[in-house]
Design a protein around this nucleic acid. Structure first.
Length: 497
RNA sequence: GGCGCCAUAGCCAAGUGGUAAGGCAAGGGUCUGCAAAACCCUCAUUCCCCGGUUCGAAUCCGGGUGGCGCCUCCA
């Protein structure tokens, strides 16, 4: 039974549409990457994680996906940041590209197939600007080049804006007066900016200068995915003006539709407000990863649909990690049960494939992350049931079923980017992090456990319970197993207000 | 001022015309010397409010209320 056809919410159409690849079996996707002038924050991380899972899922469905995510490394904000640090702008941009790669490694994001940079695509950018001038939709003005919005009749189709409404919105543009004189219409936007003294610049037919903000994506997407491609992704805030302008530039240059389907991820909120660099209410990804496992953060991001706003708190993050430890405990137990055993051929219990089927139904419907997670929960519940309270006696049947379920977990996990670690290693690493966070004296823990073992051997259960209580006061929970006592840190969650 | 999104249990969150997924927390149980883990059971006659359409609405329409976003750099 093949999984259902995939439907994707297209911002342009304002509804879910069937995924219809231009070339059967293949998909091209362009995701707007970071402008590298500082560290990325959790909101950025959420968007990139969403598209990471989307690309992984499309590949798992057999599509040959070409995934392009750019770096905007030439930009006004980079110049400004470099002036503050005293670095060369390109050096600063390169530094933050390296920092981005480090941060993102902690989230286990897959590498895009192409990660183009503006600074190495100036010829392509200049070529498309020349084409726009030749097509009569762009004009030079004192060394700058502007796109004449009124010449592109589809303008506003993505963001549902009308030109007359935009006009009033632009009146308070910073530095307005000089800019006003250079532009024919107030909503025209820059394709090329002549450099001021001290600013980095590249030669062009119009001036030594640099590209405007939006043109790089038009140039790079057409280079790597063609003039028309399947999917274009980014954060909600890029719809206007960035994506709107991209459409105008690309379509005015090529005469073709830029992209069939536009996908936009929603924001991550911090205390009810959008997290953004300009508001200053940001939590850096790396600061979060210092306190929290990367997979736990991924799991948290997947707890709601990618088009839904997501609020976060320390408690929610800690809960995600606790949930992840349930999954890893289960995997550890399962692997111990199944490793190196041959259960032969034969029937299995129930219908092990039903969870994966449910997962596909959810993911096929515009990548319903939380629905997919529900399927995952069902799968783990079944695994635990078979391990601890098997509904059938035949151990070979149980074993074969566990093997089948474990394989399904592996497939779903690689789509979600979860459970990529060795269960025992992950659990130990989490314990160590909590030990440090709570300042637990592990030597004392070991000593108390030894004392308790002695008391239990002597059947002095009152003393054993007293020692358990003492450990509990240290936030340590003991688990007696046939192989001896192990322990874990209680992830005490102080009540929130 | 213009445009748009959202509102589901104590909390997080699916569901978008057919009678409320899943998770956390809580309570009870099985197991255990006691625990922990796991499993089982319980936990929204109801989906912000008021009207309307319909045999039937959390889901569609109209009007409120509350929260958020875009219109200016932002994932």
């Amino acid at each position: 039974m093949s999984p259902p056809a995939i439907r994707v919410f297209n911002t342009l159409a304002q509804q879910k549409v069937p995924l219809a690849p231009i070339v059967p079996g293949k998909l091209g996707i362009y995701v707007c990457g970071p402008t590298v002038y500082s560290f990325i924050h959790l909101g950025n991380a959420r968007t990139f994680t969403s598209f990471d899972v989307i690309v992984r899922y499309l590949r798992s469905r057999g599509f040959e996906v070409r995934y392009v995510r750019n770096f905007t490394d030439v930009d006004d904000k980079i110049i400004k940041a470099a002036q503050e640090t005293g670095e060369a702008p390109q050096a600063l941009a390169d530094r933050f590209i390296a920092e981005f790669q480090k941060d993102v490694a902690g989230l286990h994001l897959i590498e895009p197939d192409v990660s183009p940079k503006v600074s190495t695509h100036l010829p392509e950018i200049i070529a498309i600007i020349q084409k726009l001038i030749a097509n009569g939709v762009a004009y030079e003005s004192n060394g700058d080049v502007y796109f004449q919005v009124s010449k592109f009749q589809g303008y506003g189709k993505l963001s549902r804006k009308k030109l007359d409404e935009l006009e009033s919105g632009t009146r308070e543009l910073a530095g307005g007066d000089t800019l006003k004189e250079l532009k024919r219409e107030p909503y025209d936007f820059a394709l090329w900016k002549a450099a001021k003294p001290g600013e980095p610049s590249w030669p062009s037919p119009w001036s030594a200068g640099r590209p405007g903000w939006h043109i790089e994506c038009s140039a790079m997407s057409s280079k790597y995915l063609g003039e028309t491609f399947d999917l274009h992704g980014g954060g909600l805030d890029l719809i206007f003006p960035h994506h709107e302008n991209e459409i105008a530039q690309s379509e005015a240059a090529s005469g073709k539709t830029l992209c069939h389907c536009w996908m936009h991820g929603n924001f991550l909120d911090l205390e009810g407000a959008k997290m953004s660099k300009s508001l200053g209410n940001v939590v850096r990804l790396r600061d979060a990863l210092a306190k929290l496992d990367g997979e736990a953060l991924r799991y948290f991001f997947l707890s709601t649909h990618y088009r839904q706003q997501l609020s976060f708190s320390d408690k929610m993050l800690a809960d995600a990690e606790t949930r992840l430890s349930y999954f890893y405990e289960t995997l550890k137990k399962t692997d111990e049960r199944v490793a190196g055993k041959d259960f032969g051929q034969g029937p299995v219990h129930g219908e092990p494939e039903r969870f994966e089927r449910e997962f596909h139904e959810q993911m096929s419907d515009d990548f319903n992350f939380s629905g997919a997670l529900a399927a995952l929960s069902g799968l783990f519940n079944e695994v635990n049931l078979l391990c601890d309270k098997p509904p059938v006696k035949d151990k070979a049947v149980v074993g074969r079923t566990l093997v089948a379920l474990r394989a399904a977990v592996g497939r779903l996990a690689s789509v979600l980017g979860l459970f990529q670690d060795e269960p025992a290693a992950w659990l130990l690493r989490r314990r160590e992090r909590l030990v440090v966070a709570r300042g637990i004296d592990t030597a004392k823990v070991d000593a108390l456990i030894a004392q308790r073992q002695a008391a239990r051997a002597a059947k002095d259960f009152a003393e054993a319970d007293r020692l358990r209580g003492e450990l509990k006061a240290m936030n340590v929970e003991l688990m007696d197993t046939p192989a001896g006592a192990t322990w874990k840190v209680i992830p005490t969650l102080q009540a929130e207000d």
